[in-house]
Amino acid sequence: MILEDTIAWLTDADRWTGAGSIPQRLAEHVGITFLVVLLGALIAIPVGILIGHSRRGKTAVVGLAGALRAIPSLGLLTLVGLYLGIGLKAPIVALLVLAIPSLLAGAYAGVESVDRQTVDAARAIGMSEWQIITRVELPLASPVIIGGIRAATLQVVATATLAAYVSDYGLGRYVFSGLKGGDYSPMLGGAILVSVLAIVLELILAGVHSVSRRLSDPASTATAKGTL
């Protein structure tokens, strides 16, 4: 019965047009996911690259990433929401805390994994540290960095449902409105929509990840040739 009601809810034409429609909520959900991952990348990836390049601060990063992962998202959202009030600021802060560990770990692990002999050879032929980072380490580390972006995106898109807890935003609105009204159809419908969105994003990012892996091998070959 619940499944039938959910299918009817999802296929109702009124759900696909106007204010509060599925396309609008979907666009909001994708928008907040993209914004959080972008902000997180701007903060975490440069720090991770610096740590991976210098080989310093890894212990602190691992500890910080573990600590951030241990924070309950709903609890953090509630705490930040009490301070910042109703709106998108609290969800963005809470989701940033969730996204940064994967982005940070992917950046420093990717750069750190680059063969030291390749880096030393690049330094020996006169490359500056900036050139080594941009021309040697980043091309070779790109698959791992993209893997971190992929993990962060999937974590954020799933947890962004909580944004509706303190704001009228995203697909999570269906879940919370159904919970409040005791109607399971929008709750299950919203969960299905979030799941489908996560699967679509995973397929897209998996393709990008695969391409980056293939491109990193020619980059390695070119770099090795350039150091001879």
Results as ranks from 00 to 15, higher is better:
residue 132 I to M: 13
residue 102 S to E: 13
residue 101 P to I: 01
residue 130 W to E: 13
residue 97 V to A: 11
residue 96 L to H: 04
residue 141 A to Y: 01
residue 52 G to V: 00
residue 105 A to L: 15
residue 18 G to Q: 02
residue 35 L to M: 11
residue 14 D to I: 13
residue 9 W to V: 05
residue 221 T to Y: 14
residue 8 A to D: 15
residue 130 W to K: 10
residue 197 L to I: 10
residue 48 G to C: 00
residue 169 Y to N: 12
residue 50 L to N: 10
residue 142 S to N: 11
residue 60 A to Y: 03
residue 83 Y to P: 06
residue 214 R to A: 14
residue 140 L to K: 01
residue 52 G to D: 04
residue 170 G to P: 07
residue 15 R to Y: 06
residue 27 A to H: 03
residue 222 A to V: 07
residue 184 Y to S: 15
residue 177 S to M: 13
residue 40 G to M: 01
residue 186 P to Q: 09
residue 90 A to N: 01
residue 25 R to C: 07
residue 223 T to N: 08
residue 54 S to P: 01
residue 212 S to F: 09
residue 59 T to S: 14
residue 115 D to L: 00
residue 216 S to C: 06
residue 185 S to I: 07
residue 184 Y to K: 14
residue 145 I to K: 03
residue 128 S to Y: 07
residue 126 G to A: 02
residue 170 G to A: 04
residue 48 G to V: 00
residue 93 V to G: 05
residue 167 S to T: 01
residue 104 L to F: 04
residue 47 V to A: 09
residue 12 D to F: 02
residue 106 G to V: 01
residue 17 T to I: 13
residue 127 M to A: 12
residue 113 S to H: 03
residue 58 K to V: 15
residue 197 L to A: 11
residue 132 I to K: 10
residue 55 R to A: 11
residue 87 G to L: 02
residue 87 G to R: 01
residue 60 A to R: 00
residue 167 S to N: 05
residue 49 I to A: 08
residue 111 V to D: 08
residue 194 V to E: 14
residue 88 L to G: 08
residue 181 G to V: 06
residue 219 A to E: 11
residue 93 V to D: 05
residue 7 I to W: 12
residue 5 D to L: 13
residue 205 L to S: 06
residue 91 P to G: 04
residue 181 G to S: 12
residue 216 S to V: 05
residue 202 E to S: 15
residue 143 P to R: 02
residue 34 F to V: 11
residue 99 A to H: 12
residue 224 A to I: 08
residue 4 E to V: 14
residue 91 P to V: 03
residue 25 R to Y: 02
residue 160 A to K: 05
residue 34 F to Q: 10
residue 193 L to P: 09
residue 212 S to P: 09
residue 167 S to Y: 01
residue 72 P to Q: 05
residue 55 R to C: 08
residue 2 I to A: 12
residue 221 T to R: 15
residue 129 E to P: 09
residue 91 P to Q: 04
residue 78 T to L: 14
residue 43 I to H: 03
residue 213 R to A: 14
residue 81 G to M: 00
residue 128 S to I: 04
residue 91 P to A: 06
residue 181 G to H: 13
residue 99 A to Q: 12
residue 119 V to I: 03
residue 7 I to V: 13
residue 223 T to F: 06
residue 178 G to P: 10
residue 60 A to V: 04
residue 67 A to D: 12
residue 151 A to Y: 12
residue 223 T to K: 04
residue 179 L to G: 14
residue 71 I to P: 14
residue 108 Y to E: 04
residue 57 G to V: 02
residue 222 A to R: 07
residue 34 F to R: 02
residue 4 E to H: 14
residue 51 I to M: 02
residue 10 L to D: 09
residue 105 A to C: 15
residue 225 K to A: 11
residue 191 A to Y: 08
residue 171 L to T: 03
residue 165 Y to K: 07
residue 66 G to E: 08
residue 9 W to N: 07
residue 54 S to D: 05
residue 108 Y to C: 05
residue 50 L to V: 10
residue 18 G to C: 02
residue 111 V to C: 07
residue 19 A to H: 02
residue 51 I to E: 07
residue 26 L to I: 00
residue 140 L to A: 06
residue 67 A to R: 01
residue 83 Y to I: 06
residue 94 A to H: 06
residue 125 I to A: 10
residue 74 L to P: 15
residue 171 L to M: 04
residue 26 L to H: 00
residue 11 T to N: 08
residue 60 A to P: 05
residue 148 G to Q: 01
residue 8 A to I: 03
residue 134 T to C: 14
residue 207 G to N: 03
residue 199 I to F: 15
